[in-house]
């Protein structure tokens, strides 16, 4: 009976899980901030680490101070907070990713991994529309797209797909964002946005472990 209820309500991922995900993401961004900034100084403007660190710290604070009631609300709140604190392109892009994914989860108190995968796919599409980017443009989409696709299979598959996607940006020439101004000189560097996206997906897998 309890099994049935779980499948009817959608699954086992609750507010605590989503809060844990974002808290782990904040810790990962904190830990890796210098590396993100280093990658960004090669093909961008050396601020990606500091900006995300500030944003995710603010997310952690708001989730502590005003804990949302549903998984969807956790992501929507976090997305709004990123938009209000990060700036640059990453603020609106990561903010939109979390907001749209959160909206896709609706009002359910618990959701399944499959539902999260479907909502994340919508969120990733919204990021693509907002930034006008496509797969292979050397952006965060190159990690997020494969991750959303693989999340239907397992959390670990999503993590590995994101990591592979980030590494696969190295030989690409950037067509969007500040790195695009470098033309061919952007080749040979890993995209900072794809790298931070892989961190976010790795935190998701860590929260599920």
């Amino acid at each position: 009976m309890s099994d049935m209820n779980e499948s009817e309500s959608g699954g086992a991922l609750d507010v605590a899980f989503f809060t844990r995900w974002l808290t782990l993401a904040a810790a990962a961004v904190d830990r890796e901030a210098d590396r993100l900034t280093e990658l960004d100084s090669a093909i961008g403007d050396a601020d990606h680490g500091a900006n995300l660190k500030r944003g995710f710290a603010a997310v952690r604070d708001v989730l502590e101070k005003e804990p949302p009631q549903t998984p969807g609300a956790v992501l929507v709140t976090a997305g709004r907070q990123l938009i209000s604190t990060v700036g640059g392109a990453s603020g609106p892009l990561y903010g939109t990713l979390l907001r749209r994914t959160g909206k896709g989860l609706g009002d359910s108190v618990t959701v399944s991994r499959e539902q999260l995968a479907a909502a994340l796919t919508e969120g990733v599409a919204a990021v693509g529309r907002l930034g006008g980017a496509h797969a292979g443009d050397k952006t965060m989409l190159d990690a997020l797209g494969p991750a959303a696709g693989a999340l239907g299979e397992s959390f670990e598959a999503a993590r590995d797909a994101a990591e592979r996607g980030a590494l696969a940006t190295v030989p690409l020439q950037a067509r969007k964002g500040r790195a695009s101004y470098l033309g061919e000189r952007s080749v040979g560097h890993q995209d900072p946005g794809a790298t931070s996206s892989a961190l976010l997906v790795a935190a998701l897998a860590e929260a599920a472990a």
């Binding site: 050396a46 601020d47 900006n51 938009i83 209000s84 990060v86 700036g87 640059g88 603020g91």
Partner: peptide, 11 residues
């Protein structure tokens, strides 16, 4: 004014 080399936020 945003952070250094970072656009301001909509607020």
């Amino acid at each position: 004014p945003g952070e250094v080399f970072t656009s301001p936020v909509p607020d």
